[in-house]
Design a protein around this nucleic acid. Structure first.
Lengths: 199, 199
DNA sequence: AAATCTAACTAACAATCGTTAGTTTTGTGG
DNA sequence: CCACAAAACTAACGATTGTTAGTTAGATTT
């Protein structure tokens, strides 16, 4: 009899801590970190605020968990693309694609990263700022390389960088009301729009 | 002797109320509405928090003033463009241009509009949401018209709309560190990038 | 059955929040 | 110099904030 390889995908039941972080993330996305109280989070879970502290160290831990988690995702994905031997155009396509992928799985984390990073305390804020700067530098190098090679036509790389980054960072706001698009169609359209323009 | 026409530009000294709103706007942009206390605002003006109430009704009034002010600006500008008899491409160029102009004069207001509209109370929130929906509808019609006429090539207008709007709405984050660009150069580059892409 | 663990609870803490009331200082026009 | 208005002040209010301490109910393990 042939040997068979089973791939069993198990969706692990989330720990109570993970549940809290997820519920908090949803509230943070809706109203922002500062406007959400521990009692708000507790109420959304049908428990009392003090009970949260059996599972987490405090409000700040929720924020730093959310932000650092997705910051590492972006950093890893960007480092992968940057070190591969691809044309600048191919790299740019890859960046757009992984941005969409990460956004699908980490929309609430991205909301916190974009809007509440300044409320991180201690070393965490500096670490996140540095990761974002490194990310942008990688992105900038790819665009500059594309301009030098003549693949991209633009005078100022900053305008391109800003435009594309703005769009990608805001992707977490795409909602079903705007149309339930298939992921691969969205990727294709987004690549087309950002790279080839609209005329 | 020839008659001479004098244009005298007077920068009116701001009222105390306007000063407060401006200082608050700067703090709101930095940390968000909920994370800024009346005592923070007062401290930035070297007075006590209670003194603020000689000039304003409350914290909420500051927020609604900031947001409604710039929301009307965008609505008026968009209505102007939408009712003019221009090609979709020309309309789009006009939109990009007035977005940059308004951003220069109302960066802090736009930050509040983008990030703190949900903290508006009473009728104000609904009014702002409706204005934004009307704005987007106007924008969407222009893009659809461009697609139908064959001026724009895209399958889904939503992707274009989302991409351009994301970039324009985020313009308030452009800082000097990113390069002090002349306004007209920025306009030209932005039009080029958003419309013709980068290849 | 006893012991341990998990996850909730009540009660309270000091700090801070937006805001009000009443008072004093400051600047200006008559 | 005086009268008045503008704009600051002190003191305090009730509500809410994040968090801690100590306790309890229920499930699991020994």
């Amino acid at each position: 009899m042939d040997s068979v390889l089973f791939f069993i995908f198990v969706r692990m039941k989330p720990t109570r801590k993970e549940e809290i972080i997820q519920v908090a993330a949803s509230l943070f996305k809706e109203k922002g970190y500062s406007a959400v109280s521990m009692r708000d989070i507790a109420q959304a879970m049908d428990i009392k605020a003090a009970s949260l502290y059996n599972h987490i160290a405090g409000k700040q831990e929720i924020l730093s968990t959310l932000i650092l988690e997705v910051a590492y995702e972006f950093t890893a994905a960007m480092n992968n693309v940057a070190t591969e031997s691809l044309t600048p155009l191919e790299k740019l396509e890859n960046i757009i694609n992984f941005h969409i992928d990460i956004t699908i799985n980490y929309a609430e984390n991205i909301a916190a990263l974009n809007n509440d990073w300044m409320h991180l305390e201690g070393d965490d804020r500096q670490r996140v700022v540095r990761m974002r700067e490194a990310y942008e530098d990688n992105f900038r190098k790819i665009i500059k390389e594309g301009i030098e090679k003549g693949d991209f036509n633009a005078k100022h790389p900053e305008v391109i960088l800003f435009s594309i980054l703005s769009t990608l960072r805001t992707l977490y706001l795409w909602n079903e009301k705007r149309g339930k698009l298939d992921v691969n169609i969205l990727k294709k359209d987004m690549v087309n729009t950002l790279i080839h323009g609209i005329v």
